[in-house]
Design a protein around this nucleic acid. Structure first.
Lengths: 247, 247
DNA sequence: CGACCTGTTGAACTCCGTCAAGGCGTGTGG
DNA sequence: CCACACGCCTTGACGGAGTTCAACAGGTCG
């Protein structure tokens, strides 16, 4: 039996349990709580895209901003670079989450969205969403709240992470990851599968790969987690992760 | 002669040169490019508040989110804390800028907004702005773009700053500060007056006060700037600041 | 005047970055 | 099938940037 925990991180747009076959919207997209007619209107402007293969881009820095994208399946990393070329990973996004919202109000995306696995997305032209918001106040509210949530998410992860040591920074990241896509296995063990490389995680956390590797070894030694190739098993009690972060 | 440079950082809501005595809006508030009637409508829902003395709060973490605030004069720092109590400064905001937008879509503010100088603000009830957005599409667009800009601003300052050394991190901060409130004096010298303590700047940059102090001494020695009590003078050529940041 | 806050400086220590080497899994080509 | 290369990860040794702890200088305010 596999049980999925769901986000308290505010990145999910819709209830993943919602039965989307009963409407014309691709599963896991915007428009939570709207009536049939409104959902039909939204459906008419969005468009499914895929498959996007690992390493391929959904959008790039140079592209003009036109749409935001709801991920239907797969994993996406948002990546840019400093002026001197050092890479910068802003975040990882999964099925049911949105990418591209950072570009709202700008002429171009200012980062690349790269698929880490074979990925399907749902393109949502933003100008038409803005127009629709006039007719559907609830949609306007959803979009506004969405942007607010993204600001708070950055504050809770990257901004707060700055003040933490390497191992705690990773635990903060792991906790978020577990909330969003962690699984409880049949034997009761709590695990997170990593679709990204540990090198990418290191960059995202503002660390060197070597430093992250050492932090992981240390945490494993302390019995906090089990470090596998593409999977982290979380040991200790239920709320143990965050209590480790904050001592 | 004092000349003011203006923001390319996207935090300003309106053109500061706009003649606001000709309308009912307190100077420097939202509603750029709207007609007289629309501005009157907005005016009717906003309310001026002040004076807020140094150390007093505009809002606090515990407060329910109801309004965003446009700063009319003064300086505000946005502050919170990690779970273990270590302070965290998210940013500093000046006359003509907005605070509280991070809370859009949440029930409470999740940070304190503290005045650093005697400050006047303009309260903008957000629920009523949301309603007005239905009638005034241009206003909706302004608010959406505003939130997007805030996300990008955090990306450019805090997120990118993480990857820089202490002195470059400060230069990035100083450059932003100079764009937003720097002055060119009569003798041609370019200066930034600091309304916040250097201790607060250090916290904001994720550094210890001692580390920032050392970085400032180093930069002064190198002839990049002159470090005064409450003022930084920028030496070197016009575009020198950022070129120092990126080598 | 003395208490207090802010900022600066020095010395020892710590954590992370850097450089270098090696292990492991995967894919490819002989 | 094995050899080899390659990417990813880990480990070790070293050095450096920033933290910590402590002392002190300058300014402000009671």
């Amino acid at each position: 039996m596999v049980q999925r925990k769901r986000s308290s991180c505010g990145l999910h747009l819709v209830n993943p349990d919602r039965d989307c076959n009963s409407c014309d919207l691709p599963k896991k997209c915007i428009g939570e709580g709207l009536d049939k007619e409104q959902i039909d209107t939204i459906s008419s402007i969005i468009q499914q895209q895929g498959p996007i293969k690992p390493g391929e881009a959904i959008f790039r820095m140079e592209d003009r901003f036109r749409s935001i994208y709801a991920i239907q399946s797969g994993t996406v990393k948002i990546e840019s670079a400093l002026d001197d070329g050092t890479p910068l990973i802003h975040g990882f996004y999964f099925s049911g989450e949105l990418v591209g919202v950072e570009a709202v109000g700008d002429s171009h995306y200012q980062s690349d969205a790269i698929a880490l696995e074979t990925t399907w997305v749902c393109e949502i032209p933003f100008e038409r969403i803005e127009t629709l918001c006039i007719e559907i106040p609830k949609l306007q509210q959803e979009i506004l709240h969405l942007l607010g949530k993204r600001i708070r998410y950055t504050n809770r992860t990257i901004v707060q992470g700055r003040y933490l040591s390497a191992d705690r920074r990773f635990l903060l990241f792991l906790n978020d990851l577990y909330q969003r896509k962690g699984e409880i296995k049949a034997d009761g063990s709590r695990r997170v599968t990593l679709p990204m490389t540990k090198g990418d995680i290191a960059i995202h956390l503002g660390l060197r790969p070597e430093s992250l590797s050492r932090a992981l070894s240390k945490l494993q030694e302390e019995g906090v987690l089990r470090n596998r190739a593409r999977e982290i098993e979380i040991l200790g009690d239920n709320e143990g992760l965050l209590s480790c972060v904050w001592m």
